[in-house]
Design a protein around this nucleic acid. Structure first.
Length: 575
DNA sequence: TTCCTCGGCCAC
DNA sequence: AAACGTGGCCGAGGAA
């Protein structure tokens, strides 16, 4: 196998006197044979040639979110990269002597943004190739000096692969059927009303609510006035939350809960959502929902998203996620990733064994630790989240006895957090240290004139942070497993033989591709004849990810996989 | 008008 | 039972 080479791609905005429309970033590429100075199209073509020639190149660039969409638009995909911005963010918290990010690394994701006035007045904002290489070398050295260089290297590779995937999923989009979506909304709410009007069904419910509360003119969307009306009508509630309402015996409860359900559907995923977030397909291409995935957007390492509420596509509209004709969705979700990751981290063989044959919570019951699956789940989640309420009090001691290594690890993470310390995931993502405000509150409680309020606030804040660090190690390690799972899936999908060229099919569209990712779940859009093969790939990638993180430790990561036409048909196992 | 906080609910 | 972690996003309503 040829050795991996490094290519450097730098996007520089050169704007001396040029109008925004013409001040396209300039691409500079450094290859072993020399340096090229190219426009985007040329750079994309050149990079594409290197890739398709089977060169094993890891492209080093400042910011995938800024660079890769331009390459994708030009039809070029790459296998591997180093995202210096994301890697810097991880190393900044992980190393004992962090260095300030170079100014060109700070701006963050700017995908698809139009040129702004700043582009005109910022002289030559782009970095020099030398500076990029220097930052890269610094990162390589920081990894080598770390406690666990192998793990950290894997984390940075996975984070960078995630950045590629995020850009590709945005470019490819999630298949979305506007007609199906409209049909769902119409069935629930009535036909689409004129702008600014309530749909028919909501209007009927509002009228019924006003009648039952004797509150003519009441707007059920106004919490304050609704709460007053409810209390006037004799309901003993302190909020308008549905958990509280559902405990009340009053005829208004049913229509009000229905109103809230439908109002939520309308505001979160109604027709205006459809207009805003689902683009119209063109020339035979189906509609697509595009969100901006933000790798590393959550402190724990989970991804955030921006736009369209992609983190919360409700079950009610998943019927609108429909594969293209002749295609299928392979929907895979991993079962109980967090406790499994915890078992791996703590080398807790007993907990690993409980999850060895499918459902981990059932395994807890089979081991005699608890008597029902529900209690197993409540107890385990309490251990992971730091819960104390309800049944947790009796379940946690049982878990501690059965799994001292696993529970000991999260309990220790909580103690460290309460003291103001930092904790690490398995691969070495480090939690941010507490800020000055936190330190202030803790400090004040230690003063000689501190009163009860100071102490109570300090204790409560310390516990909050303890729950954060407790969960950080588990959620973060689970996110690392998921990232490796997805990266492995992508790598294996890329190795599938390319289909014959088809006119009108964009790069990446003619073959199986990832279209959705959410914490412990991935969706692959694939031509139907390949669906079974894709399912096997996804399954194998899950096992491979487990081995990447935890080596030969006997840990399984079972998936629930469904091959479906619509996301709604991917029945989730009880998780 | 714009900006911000809050309560509320969706997802994992 | 609502004092259990991470998020995004909406409308209402107050502050600027």
């Amino acid at each position: 196998m040829a050795p991996t080479r490094t290519g450097v791609l730098v996007a520089a905005s050169r704007s001396t006197g040029a109008p925004p429309a013409d001040s396209l970033p300039q691409a500079l590429a450094t290859a072993p044979e020399g340096r090229l100075s190219l426009g985007w199209d040329q750079a994309a073509a050149w990079i594409g040639e290197q890739e398709s020639a089977g060169q094993d190149i890891r492209w080093v660039w400042p910011d995938t979110a800024a660079v890769y969409p331009r390459l994708l638009a030009a039809g070029t995909r790459v296998g591997r990269c180093v995202d210096l911005r994301l890697c810097h963010a991880i190393l900044h918290l992980a190393t004992s002597d962090p260095w300030a990010p170079p100014p060109w690394l700070v701006p963050g994701p700017v995908a698809d943004t139009a040129p702004t006035l700043l582009d005109d007045i910022t002289p030559d904002a782009g970095p020099a190739v030398e500076d990029v290489l220097a930052e890269h070398q610094r990162q390589v050295a920081a990894v080598a000096a770390a406690e666990e260089p192998g793990r950290l290297r894997l984390l940075l590779a996975a984070e960078s692969a995630g950045a590629l995937i995020a850009a590709e999923m945005h470019a490819d989009g999630l298949p979305w059927n506007r007609d199906r979506h409209d049909a769902i909304l119409t069935a629930e709410l009535g036909p689409r009303p004129p702008r600014g009007m309530r749909p028919e069904r909501l209007e009927q419910l509002a009228a019924r609510i006003r009648e039952l509360l004797h509150a003519p003119g009441l707007n059920p969307d106004s919490q304050a006035t609704l709460l007053r009306a409810l209390r006037t009508a004799g309901l003993d509630v302190s909020s308008t939350a549905k958990w509280e309402l559902s405990g009340q015996a009053h005829p208004v409860v049913e229509p009000l809960l229905e109103y809230k359900r439908l109002a939520r559907l309308l505001s979160a995923n109604g027709w205006s959502w459809l207009d805003t977030w689902v683009d119209h397909g063109s020339e035979g291409r189906a509609d697509r929902f595009r969100t901006d995935y933000v790798p590393g957007g959550v402190v724990t390492g989970r991804w955030a998203t921006s736009g369209g509420g992609a983190l919360q596509i409700p079950k009610a509209v998943r019927g609108a996620v429909v594969a293209d004709p002749g295609w299928r969705l392979v929907v895979a979700d991993a079962a109980q990733v967090e406790p499994r990751a915890l078992a791996g981290m703590a080398a807790d063989l007993a907990l690993a064994r409980a999850g060895q044959h499918g459902d981990l919570y059932a395994g807890l019951v089979a081991s005699g630790v608890v008597d029902t699956r529900d209690r197993a789940k409540v107890g385990m989640l309490s251990a992971l989240y730091g819960g104390t309420a309800g049944e947790a009090g009796v379940l946690l001691p049982r878990l501690r006895r059965a799994y001292p290594l696993a529970t000991g690890l999260v309990d220790h993470a909580a103690e460290v957090g309460e003291r103001g310390g930092t904790v690490r995931t398995w691969l070495g993502r480090t939690s941010p240290p507490p800020g000055p405000a936190w330190q202030d509150v803790q400090g004040r409680a230690g003063e000689t004139d501190a009163d009860r309020t100071d102490e109570r606030r300090a204790r409560s804040q310390a516990r909050d942070r303890g729950r954060f660090t407790r969960n950080f190690v588990v959620q973060g390690t689970a996110a690392e497993w998921a990232l490796c799972w997805m990266a492995e899936t992508r790598r294996r999908l890329r190795e599938l033989p390319a289909p014959p060229d088809q006119a009108g099919i964009a790069p990446g569209q003619g073959r199986p591709h990832l279209v959705f990712f959410l914490h412990d779940e991935i969706v692959v859009h694939t031509p139907w004849p390949l669906a079974d093969q894709v399912a096997v790939i996804v399954q194998e990638a899950a096992s491979a990810s487990g081995r990447l993180l935890f080596g030969e430790f006997p840990l399984s990561f079972p998936l629930h996989i469904a091959i479906v036409d619509t996301y709604a048909d991917a029945e989730k196992e009880a998780s």
